[in-house]
Amino acid sequence: MELRRLDPRVIWLWRAQAMSRMFFFWGPICVGLGVLAAQGSDWRVGVLIGASLALMLLVLSLLWPALDFDRFGFELREHDLLVQRGVLFRRRSSIPLRRIQHVDTHQGPIERLFGLSTVAVYTAAGMSADGSIPGLPTAEAEAIRDELARRGGDDGV
């Protein structure tokens, strides 16, 4: 069965998010490892190690979002919301509509730049969202949220 896809712009959104993680988290780690490797040996060794690590991560963070996008599918079916995703670790979640406690949409600063929103679905099972669909055009996200809110929900516990 062909599932609904995300907006392709999400690939660039994820790349941007990966870049910001790269800048604030992985970048400093690469620099630190490079400095560590340079201790007691040639400084060029340090630069080489740091740079190659950074390059590897950079390539990965450019490639991975495309793979992730390829694997992501969701469908609002008769009785449930089906969300399928994962490149290495695949996951197929089914959230029965009647079990939905609440639905929300949210939009981070980078998402806002792209005009995309995330729909998060909560059931009584957990504190965190049981299913979430990132990277939908805001209007579509809101439509899905309203649809889920309309069709879902009983006491459920």
Binding site: R91, R92, P96, R99, T123, A124, A125, D130
Partner: peptide, 15 residues
């Protein structure tokens, strides 16, 4: 009738 959500998961080795 108490089921909330179900998740099917598959790691690389499982696959």
């Amino acid at each position: 009738n108490k089921l909330q959500s179900t998740h099917l998961s598959q790691g690389p080795l499982d696959r």
